[in-house]
Amino acid sequence: MSASALPSTRSAARKPDAVSRAAGEAVQKGAPLVTLLDVSKEFPNGVTALARLELCVRAGDFLSLLGPSGCGKSTALRLIAGLEPTTAGRIEWATGDAKLRPRIGFVFQEPTLMPWASVEMNVFLPLRLAGWSLRDARPRIEEALSLVGLPDFRKAMPRELSGGMKMRVSIARALVTRPSLLLMDEPFAALDEITRFKLNDDLMRLKQEMGCTVVFVTHSIYESAYLSTRIAVMAARPGRIIAEIDIDAALPREEHFRRESAYLQACANAADALHGAMDARDHL
């Protein structure tokens, strides 16, 4: 599908420095979109997944949550999405009300497609639940599928797709509502490095094109340094943020960014923070 076949409203109607919200107004770029204040999460089995987490997601951010397995990254993301209540602390939205929070897209660690439904019906789901008819939703579905490079797979069933293609369908499903906040939980962790690099580049351009804010969970230092404008480094037991690293380089970035000092510095800082946290634990 060519670019001109896409509805023009998406890129044309929006001011470059603003992010759209469900309520229709815009949060200025750089202003807090959602803030986690002193948030703790304890599970019924007694595990403290997060302790006194402070985190501010700003409109336009590409924020990575980086940390070792089990440090509470997924939990933090689920709290933001409202899939799980906090045990203590508050989550504040720029709108002042969780009910008026911006439209959210969520990409799970696994593709999480409905195996009985075609690719099209899977991508249709968020709009269907919002009361759209399939006929009205079709242009949106086609748009989302061509954004992820699968315009010809509408009728395919999930089992006919490779792992990477399933993940892209899952991303298309998150994009179909044109969310202003995209939450992604290690979406590329199960993919090979070559595919991952490609998807990283595409994701960055997609973010710029859609003008959305992204919170991206990963356990790869390199992936977070390449993609993000800010990295929140987390440590485990209890889950907390031990460092925030700003990366001053415009998005989208290209392959040569991996050789620039901003990238290398971010990698070094993130690694230092992670090692620092581990050493501190070893000396306890």
Binding site: L147, M165, R168, I194, T195
Partner: peptide
Amino acid sequence: MSPEIPHITAPEDEGL
């Protein structure tokens, strides 16, 4: 002058 549409594509699975 049309905006460049980003495509998320993986190199190895262009078709079934």
